[in-house]
Simulated scan of single mutants.
Amino acid sequence: MEARMVGSGWDRVPIDSQSIDAPLSRAAVFLTLTVAEGHEALQAVAGILDGLDDLIKTVGFRDLNGRLSCITALGSALWDRFQTGKRPKELRPFVPIEGAKHTAPATPGDLFFHIRAEREDLCFEFERLLLDQLGSSVTVADEVVGFRYFDSRDLLGFVDGTANPTGHDIGASTLVGSEDQAFAGGSYLVVQKYLHQMQPWARLAKDEQERIIGREIVSNVELPDATSGQKSHKTLATIVDDDGTEHDILRDNMPFGRPGQGEYGTYFIGYSRHLWVTQKMLERMFLGDPPGMHDRLLDFSTAHTGAVFFAPAPRTLSELVEAVQA
């Protein structure tokens, strides 16, 4: 991935885009947009994407230690509108998953921005300027402001993202490689907004909560897999192929909420090298394994959105922009 460094010596701080492996941040904005019909709107969007690095730099220079970054991702329909003649092999719209009790819905989304920083005001200012520049060429389909909650816990009380890959494994799990050389360095992205039923969850005994999640609340230690009945969330979200190889995704989930409105949630955002891995995880959660034995976490956490995007490497994003501007 590309990154531009500012400053000098050991205190240089990256101000960059498309850095999927950037450290988890304290603040984030998850912004889903639809793009207006017509070539004029498409050209306007392409022009803003062309200057995105400069906008990140403009806002991020106010506090280099704020580590502002932004990942841009395109949905299947918007990708086709760019008319490049080629597309990532697995890119497609989000397919709703209808289980016996719970459904993962598909919702609109052409363009997605994952804005991250150590300061909420940097995320706010970047989003404000970005939307001002995009103007009437886009409509906001969904906007969520996330925050780090204590020691990376969700609002249900459990540490989130424990199974994330680390070090060199991040790239191997999240970045497309030689299997789709034209789009190497990019990543498939699935997003969902979940709202929690906090009071029913709070009424559960602690050991019951732990069985549902598959980890201890305080220590975060994994519990043994259930030998009967419904499997834990941890078990259902672990994907192993027929060869016995476990496939990871990178979660950058964040809590969000408005207590005055009774809104408490988790924004799920998963980056993966192969879209089928995240798809399989969601199918196991909503349909159950075996079928009918769904993830019990869904009894307390409801998915309200669902969309698939592809975050191209900087080089590929530049090619998309040039194709529209030509």
Rank of each mutant, 00 (worst) to 15 (best):
V35F: 03
N220F: 06
V95F: 03
R148T: 09
M254N: 04
A104W: 11
S318N: 11
A326G: 04
R284M: 09
E263S: 05
A184G: 10
P105E: 01
F94C: 04
A172H: 11
L287H: 10
E210T: 07
S228P: 00
V138E: 04
S17C: 07
L297Q: 14
A73G: 12
G171A: 14
V138D: 05
A117W: 03
L55M: 12
D299E: 11
Y267Q: 09
L204W: 02
H168T: 14
C70S: 12
Q325V: 03
T227W: 02
G60M: 02
E263I: 15
V191A: 08
D21I: 14
K280Q: 11
N253A: 06
E283Y: 03
C123H: 04
L74G: 06
G135D: 11
E40T: 15
P200E: 05
V308D: 03
E40L: 10
S187G: 02
V159R: 05
V218D: 08
D252Q: 04
Y264I: 03
K234W: 06
I15Q: 13
H247S: 07
R153Y: 01
D243E: 08
A323F: 00
G306E: 07
D80T: 13
E37W: 04
S25N: 04
H294E: 08
E208M: 10
P165M: 07
L297D: 08
G288H: 14
L55N: 01
I170S: 01
Y271N: 02
R211F: 01
S76G: 06
C70W: 02
G171V: 12
V218P: 00
E40I: 13
E216L: 14
F158Y: 11
R203K: 06
E37G: 01
A237V: 15
G51C: 09
D248H: 05
V138Y: 08
D160C: 02
H39R: 14
F94D: 00
V176T: 14
G257V: 09
P224N: 14
V13C: 00
G262N: 13
T266Q: 02
D295S: 12
L74V: 13
E98I: 13
P96D: 06
L298R: 15
A41Q: 13
A36H: 12
S152W: 01
W79P: 02
V45F: 03
A117V: 07
Q192R: 15
V144Q: 07
D11K: 14
T302C: 00
T316M: 07
G51L: 05
G306C: 08
K101E: 00
G9M: 04
T84C: 10
L282M: 14
